[in-house]
Design a protein around this nucleic acid. Structure first.
Lengths: 333, 333
DNA sequence: CCGTAACCTGCAAACGGTTGTAAAGAATAC
DNA sequence: GTATTCTTTACAACCGTTTGCAGGTTACGG
């Protein structure tokens, strides 16, 4: 059916191994032969069969990318970047969605294992232990998590949190709330830690409210607690939670940013389109996707002997959901 | 390295072909043998190597899913559903993003061809001609497009458009605008046609404004034209355009829905989170993803001899961006 | 008790490549 | 002119599975 290396060999009058080498080790074949083979191959429309190649080389040139929920707006930019960068490096990527189910995640990894050279795990739901175990069989890169022996891409949410705290302090807020994320979330922990330090330094009083589901719903549910806590500014676990919170507060008659300032995290489209437009901590998701693939291919090449760590900077973008604390004159911009 | 069929055969004391059949044609092997093999396989942690299997069977059990922009909120729900459904049918899916570039699209399809049993093309940027040509080599399913000889999944945007027109007519609007999409968009054409018919029937005057870029920016850019057109209600090409339009109108001092009603298309998260919440035509994106995979596997099984068409219903969800025409008493709900 | 069919299982050749080794010829050194 | 090395190509085994074919058992009907 499809044209194979053998067809090319026959048409050129050389042995298949010569054709093979023309593509995999061109310097081992003389220039005239190489050119002849290439010409014939092009004419016949020959494309090497990667699956067959994988069988002998042990390299599939495929990658797996596993996320908990493709539809969560945090992921698509990461997926897009990872996929584009992988393609540049001549890799294809399987994208899989675990629906937040750790069991599905493990099963998925297992069936994928034979077909890929490595896997990027974004915000995995599996325990560290389980991941370490799997890491023995296959190169992994985890994003926003630390697992012993594995490469990791971390977004420096701590720094972004500091910026947000300083921004709010500068607007005259004295009491700050933090809507934490799901239990066991690495980034939520980082945020708490950084917020505590920065609040102390800026002489703010910090109240942690949570854990909360990382969704709009989670934000809505937290609205009453936030209003009753006495804070005038809140940093939410992510944009979705922030948006939900704003909606929930609105139903309680508390307006954002007039009565309460709200900061999100991620800088998703959703936050950009929300009214009021969200002040948010920018997560470098496209860079994270690229870096993850980069580290993964590195790990693949050295058979996962070294575990590299990359930390990506975050930033704060001020939009409309934060303003001077009630009773404080706006210092303006 | 990994455990192969041979290891299992050796450990069980049978020939490799028996092990192979245990998994691929269990009824051909006696119950005791089968159970012994299965037990040993389980103990050794054997997993069939799909690439090797693909070599002999010609079935990779992989699918390609090609979209123009993963980050566009229209796609993720479709990708998620397609991927989940494929997994149920024991297929893995490569997701690729063409960045709206037809050349990249074609090259991508070519390199993917040997690795997949078929490809789902969502809103392709290639010409019909090019797709037809590729269709000779590989099973395809196109979503929201009609290509001779290929299976297609179509969303009945026409019906949704009719519903929207009727909804607006019921609110007392007499002059209606339609923000069309990019030139050559199948769904934009469907919308125009349906809107014309429904407007005629409801005795509305219809003005088509466009083409417009399918983005928020495109909506902003159209704001002036919309205000000056004299219409009191607009159906936009998609949610993003609708959101942009609302923003653009706001800057011109035209409030939605008080001064102008706006209807979107797609029902993306973005529209749900927007203020005012968007009245929009619901596109069945998850269903489209599932159906596309379904038709594709069907085409794969019969070697693409038949081309099936599926048309999916759309619906209208009324939220906050539409209201009674200026000067007309709201009939209420 | 034999012939035949049904059922299991083993053998070996694919599938489309890669790669270590060998052989042939050309080039270089002495 | 011969020995040595280098370059180029061919040969063949192998990667992990599947599958047509054939041989060996067992069961069954007559």
């Amino acid at each position: 059916m499809a044209v194979t290396i053998r067809d090319v060999a026959r048409a050129t009058g050389v042995h298949v191994s010569t054709v093979s080498r023309t593509f995999s080790a061109p310097n081992l074949v003389s220039t005239p032969t190489r050119e002849r083979v290439m010409a014939v191959a092009a004419e016949l429309g020959y494309r090497p069969n990667r699956a067959a190649r994988a069988l002998t080389t042990g390299r599939t040139h495929n990658l797996g990318l596993i996320v908990s929920d493709i539809a969560n707006p945090f992921f698509p930019p990461l997926i897009k970047a990872a996929q584009a960068y992988a393609r540049e490096r001549e890799y294809h990527v399987f994208v899989a969605d675990t629906d937040e189910d750790p069991q599905a995640e493990e099963e998925l990894i297992r069936t994928l294992a034979k077909q890929v050279d490595g896997v990027v795990l974004v915000a995995p739901r599996l325990t560290n232990q389980a991941i370490e175990r799997l890491g023995l069989e296959l190169p992994f890169v985890v994003v926003n998590r630390r697992v012993k022996g594995l490469s990791a891409v971390l977004m420096d949410i701590g720094h972004g949190t500091e910026l947000a705290v300083e921004h709010l302090a500068g607007l005259g807020h004295r009491r700050l709330g933090l809507l934490s994320g799901p239990r066991g979330s690495w980034s939520s922990e980082q945020m708490k830690r950084a917020a505590a330090v920065a609040a102390e330094r800026a002489d703010l009083r910090l109240t942690v409210i949570g854990p909360n589901a990382p969704t709009e719903r989670g934000g809505i549910a937290a609205a009453t607690a936030v209003r009753d806590s006495g804070v005038t500014a809140v940093i939410a676990y992510n944009d979705l939670v922030a948006i939900g919170l704003i909606e929930g507060l609105g139903e309680l008659g508390t307006e954002v940013p007039a009565d309460m300032s709200v900061v999100g995290v991620d800088d998703t489209v959703a936050g950009r389109l929300n009214r009021p437009k969200l002040t948010t901590i920018v997560m470098p998701t496209p860079a994270a996707g690229r870096t993850a693939v980069d580290l993964l291919l590195q790990a693949v090449d050295e058979d996962g002997r070294t575990a590299a760590q990359a930390t990506l900077a975050t930033d704060l973008v001020v939009r409309e959901s934060t303003a001077a604390a009630p009773g404080v004159a706006d210092t303006g911009a």
